[in-house]
């Protein structure tokens, strides 16, 4: 709980951009790397979906919890890596982030997006879900999305890591990482990430994980180069 919200403190509010960001900046530097852990991570627990038989049948092999997904070489999945400081401002992103509820799971588990970026939430299941973002900085809401209802179109106004739950299916758990920077990535199953298109400058790069906390590194980009940034987070078994 504490770790989850301490990330908020690390977020730096940025001055609003004066020059509009071009959608696909061709040149610029890249920061890429890998997130790993030390210590003992919690065991992934099987999820008991028995109250919703629809969802049980959608998963031939039982699904496990995604709040701490680790892989070979102690890699950590679903870590949000972003520019916490040094960014030169950005225009709001206009491409829509798609978020799905399918088989009583949130897909992807962590969705990163920019402030004011359009977000569309779909219910792909043949039954109702409710989406309850437990926002504290932004306005909290809690809406059901029954079968046949249109997708929910929304956006977030303030940077925040927002835990997401479905009260109807208490095991459903995800995160919206709402960031003021346009430079962010979520680590893949090998723990790898890459932030590209960075203009020259000095950056604070932060990695955030819902259970393993945050860590920041300073990286300076001089031109069209790729700089490494590797994070080692501390895991606890419980």
């Amino acid at each position: 709980m504490i770790a989850r919200f301490s990330a908020l403190v690390a977020l730096v509010a940025l001055a609003s951009g004066t020059t509009p960001r071009e959608p696909h900046r061709p040149a610029g530097g890249t920061i890429s790397g890998k997130v790993t852990f030390t210590g003992t991570p919690p065991k992934a627990k099987p999820i008991d979906m028995s109250k919703e038989p629809n969802c049980v049948t959608q998963h031939p092999t039982p699904v496990t919890t995604e709040d701490a997904v680790t892989g070979p070489g102690n890699s950590v999945r679903y870590v949000v890596v972003y520019i916490a400081a040094g960014d030169q401002g950005a225009a709001p992103a206009t491409d829509t982030v798609r978020y799905d509820q399918k088989g009583c799971q949130y897909i992807p588990h962590v969705a990163a997006m920019q402030v004011h970026q359009p977000l569309t939430i779909y219910n792909d299941d043949p039954h109702s879900h409710n989406i309850h973002p437990l926002a504290r900085v932004n306005a909290e809401w809690n809406k059901s999305q029954p079968k046949g209802a249109p997708p929910i179109r929304t956006a977030w106004d303030e940077p925040e890591f927002i835990a997401l739950k479905c009260n109807v299916h208490p095991w459903m758990h995800g995160y919206f990482a709402v960031l003021s920077t346009p430079h962010f990535a979520v680590t893949d199953s090998s723990g790898a990430f890459s932030l590209s298109g960075l203009p020259p400058g000095k950056y604070t790069v932060t990695a955030w994980h819902e259970r393993f906390g945050t860590q920041s590194l300073e990286v300076t980009i001089a031109g069209s180069e790729t700089k490494p940034a590797n994070f080692v987070l501390t895991a606890r078994p419980y």
Partner: peptide, 25 residues
Amino acid sequence: PDTPVPLLGKLAPTGAAGGVMTPEY
């Protein structure tokens, strides 16, 4: 429960988006 009610979606855009009533509505 899954059949949209005409006009309801306009009357209650939150409670019955597209005319399909949410459980809370």
